[in-house]
Design a protein around this nucleic acid. Sequence first.
DNA 1: TTGTAAGCGTTATCAG
DNA 2: CTGATAACGCTTACAA
Lengths: 342, 342
Amino acid sequence: MSPRRPSPDRAPNQMDVARAAGVSAQTVSRVLAGHPNVRPDTAHRVHAAIDSLGYRIHAAAASLASGRTRIIGMIVVSNDRYASAALGAGVETTAAANGYTVTTASVSDHASTSAFLEAFDRLERQGAEGVVLNVPVELDSPEMQLRTERTPSTRSQVASLQPDAPLVVDQHVIGRLAVEHLLDLGHRTVWHVGGDEYWIEGRHRREAWEQVLHERGIEPPPLIPGEWTPESGYRAGRTIAAIPDATAVFVSSDEMAFGLIRALHEAGRRVPEDVSVVSVDDIALAAYASPALTTVRQPFEEMGRAAAQRLISHIEGTDAGDEPDLHPELIIRSSTAAPLAR
Amino acid sequence: MSPRRPSPDRAPNQMDVARAAGVSAQTVSRVLAGHPNVRPDTAHRVHAAIDSLGYRIHAAAASLASGRTRIIGMIVVSNDRYASAALGAGVETTAAANGYTVTTASVSDHASTSAFLEAFDRLERQGAEGVVLNVPVELDSPEMQLRTERTPSTRSQVASLQPDAPLVVDQHVIGRLAVEHLLDLGHRTVWHVGGDEYWIEGRHRREAWEQVLHERGIEPPPLIPGEWTPESGYRAGRTIAAIPDATAVFVSSDEMAFGLIRALHEAGRRVPEDVSVVSVDDIALAAYASPALTTVRQPFEEMGRAAAQRLISHIEGTDAGDEPDLHPELIIRSSTAAPLAR
DNA sequence: TTGTAAGCGTTATCAG
DNA sequence: CTGATAACGCTTACAA
């Protein structure tokens, strides 16, 4: 007797379909793979058998035999931020369109490097053929290097891991657009409420802010720290409100801008008459803030699509084709204006 | 000669580890599974070999042999809404904590029933042992019935698919809390800006609104349609602003409330002095709207956790334990007030 | 155009 | 406590 349970009601497999269709299992496999050299009549009988038995291919068996999983992994931090979600949607869409499945590994915010390594390992174990790193941290540790060499990986937000590849979205450009807009409006200097410095994005935007000010011969005022949340923006707003000659602020996210503006209003400072505010992201609610936010838009969903496309092309060894031009865009609404004459 | 490529540099497998450790492959498997009956000394040698070879278990092979994948599928609509993202994070967290992996299948908003069936099939093909349906539509079609019988499934937002199981979050309660709050404040009637009726959530909240008004002998005013977006809220706001005696509005989401309030302000109607507004969700920005939103909070992440927990318990045949009490909560802020005396 | 045979890496069963 | 062996369901290579 078999050492296995006889399982009289197991799911049908290719052999069952083959028997029902009067062909070999191999022919069933060929039909499933859309192999050209199958007589239409045969293919038809096979499809009929598949439908009548309710057969479905067993992905694990297929991967084991073929060595391919068509799984893309995605490492995500703090899934509840708008940006991560939109990015993920883009990755999903492109993956599905190319016959790939996405498996997600979440990592908590401010997680240690080892948490990222573990997440990566989880995905590799599942057989991910590539990984989209939708993450904030620098990934230059030797251990991560090891993994990204073994499994092709792409950063979705800031830059590819391949040093020579073009940036996906240059966060320095974002900072530059914001700060130059305020300066061009006539403000004498620009204060900055930073994003969490744990995130590369936050660091790059701050660097751009410093750089632009230096270029114009302005010594940057002290950085006001934030951590992406509206609460932290509110706290920063109270700080700003206490600085009488602060007339222009570059905040590193729309969500923080909501908190910041609230604090400014409570302190009796009008936006944009007394203080101009530029933020980053252009989330759906940005246009409905009071006042509507001037912000630097990031095309999140397209960024996700581009990351997935690049990864899939790499996996399949095909040319990625033209990568879309993912430039950030300054959207001018009502939270910025020229400073009042004094 | 073998019909396969000889692959001199293939990834190490259990046999390689076994050789390196001087044991059989079976013992390696036992060590990996944490089987109790292994001599500590042997286990130690195996672990050493694993580390030195950089061995990782091959999930596809393991599933094929064991018949288990430890994969949970999740069907998601419009991943970029805050609620879906937070829910998904909860599912992820709980799955990971129990050694499960989450595979997502996205479906576009207003997708046809067949799109949902296809998504379900995709997940089954991947070997999902259960599916979290984070979706808006009713799932009583015979085809879906077929699938949910084969693969255990749970709705994360509204109710379990098992008719006798308790609701996860009762959307009628949400509508009731909102409408009764306004009525108790002294408003004579309450207008409703609905969510998209394609979503069960939207329908249930509307039903609750109608029911509460009827209970108090009030004939509900015409429903003002919305579709979750701030833009649709803005449009609804212009409608409301044109109705002089509308003093209280129940909007089906915070995002719509932002748009609604903006339209009201532009029309010169003050919130809450002229019009009180209650919404649903309590997203992070709700407290930073102008005015801060009175809203009915939904514990999204916990809802996701509960859904995953229930599913996993079902898969493993264990008792789900006490399900957390997932009640919505009315958060009173500044967008509601008693009507002005006229 | 179709069929046969081998093997993918793991786990379950049974024997020792 | 450990090992040998037989599946799991599919795809690749080759033969017919």
